[in-house]
């Protein structure tokens, strides 16, 4: 279980993810990128807080379409992701996967809701058999709770003592559908019905995410699967511009999200220094990606 993160470290890591994705949206709006992207702006604390307890080489992370924050937190390879979204040969998957189909050093994403939970469960079964103390963490959202495979896997994870942590990032909307009209009852109680430990917390409290994830992962590694429900909020559109929410509702959450909370804890000079460092690192990341050749196929 990793030690708590200092406010400066929270700020640096979350801000990098935030600025990375804002940069992607800017590039899309300028027509510099094609395809689609799904940002986790407002949800960065989930990625940073959970993944700080994980180690590439030992642990596995399986994520979904909204995966950039998880990828950056786990792999420390933002330029590989940037190049992938830009369709460059230096991308994580050489441009084959794009924004939501990533693979690097025990990090996997796929774009179909729910399908990643079986994949993660199989990987957890492999980890159980290997016996190396590795854990598999799979990130899903409130929308994915509509998929039956999630519950098939909760059942098997409990029956088979899988080292599996399911993180439910409840960002209140599945694309445009509010959680109130898509999810009945209690989310943690769904897991508890299978005898799985479930914790629910407010995603604006970054240190609480870190503490809860660390505690759950220490038991997950012993073969007790767990569910962590983080009530969070997506501050941007589902993908690029398809937002039908009340702007006042979004603005209110923007003032109180985890990054805003941490930012207010810093001395102004310190904040400015970290912001400058993040901008510099991001510029390097973009430059590295842009230096990679554009992926081009050969005719069949």
């Amino acid at each position: 279980m990793s030690a708590p993160l200092a406010a400066t470290e929270w700020f640096r890591r979350m801000l990098f993810i935030r600025r990375f994705e804002e940069t992607l949206l800017e590039m899309f709006s300028k027509g510099l990128l094609v395809g689609t992207t799904h940002t986790c702006i407002g949800q960065e604390a989930d990625a940073v807080g959970v993944i700080d307890h994980l180690e590439p080489g030992r642990d596995v992370v399986v994520s979904n379409h909204r995966c950039h924050g998880h990828y950056i937190a786990f792999t420390d390879d933002p330029s590989g992701l940037m190049a992938e979204v830009m369709g460059r040969v230096g991308g994580t998957c050489a441009g084959r996967g794009g924004s939501q189909h990533l693979c690097r050093d025990g990090f996997y994403t796929n774009g179909v809701q729910g399908s990643i939970v079986p994949l993660a469960s199989g990987m957890a079964l492999a980890e159980r058999e290997r016996g190396g103390g590795g854990a598999v963490t799979v990130f899903i959202g409130d929308g994915t709770l509509g998929q039956g495979a999630v519950y098939e896997c909760m059942n098997m994870a409990a029956l088979w003592s899988l080292p599996l942590l399911i993180v439910v990032e409840n960002n209140q909307y599945a694309q445009t559908t509010p959680v109130e009209i898509a999810v009945a009852g209690s989310i943690p109680d769904r897991a508890r019905a299978f005898g799985i430990t479930a914790v629910e917390l407010d995603g604006r409290d970054a240190p609480a995410i870190h503490a809860a994830a660390g505690e759950l992962l220490s038991t997950v590694r012993t073969g007790a699967p767990a569910v962590l429900v983080i009530d969070t909020y997506r501050l941007r559109a589902h993908s690029k511009g398809d937002d039908v929410r009340d702007p006042a509702e979004v603005a209110a959450r923007e003032r109180t999200d985890a990054l805003a909370v941490v930012s207010q804890q810093l001395e102004p000079a310190e904040r400015e220094r970290i912001m400058a460092e993040v901008e510099s690192a991001l510029a390097d990341c973009v430059a590295t990606a842009e230096a990679s050749p554009i992926a081009v196929g050969s005719a069949a």
Binding site: P118, A126, C153, M156
Partner: peptide, 23 residues
């Protein structure tokens, strides 16, 4: 040998996850 519940939708994915991890 792992006796499974009736969960074919997940079992195919579980097999994929095991295979990617070397089994």
């Amino acid at each position: 040998v792992i006796s499974t519940p009736i969960s074919e939708a997940s079992l195919v994915g579980i097999a994929a996850g095991m295979a990617i991890q070397g089994y």
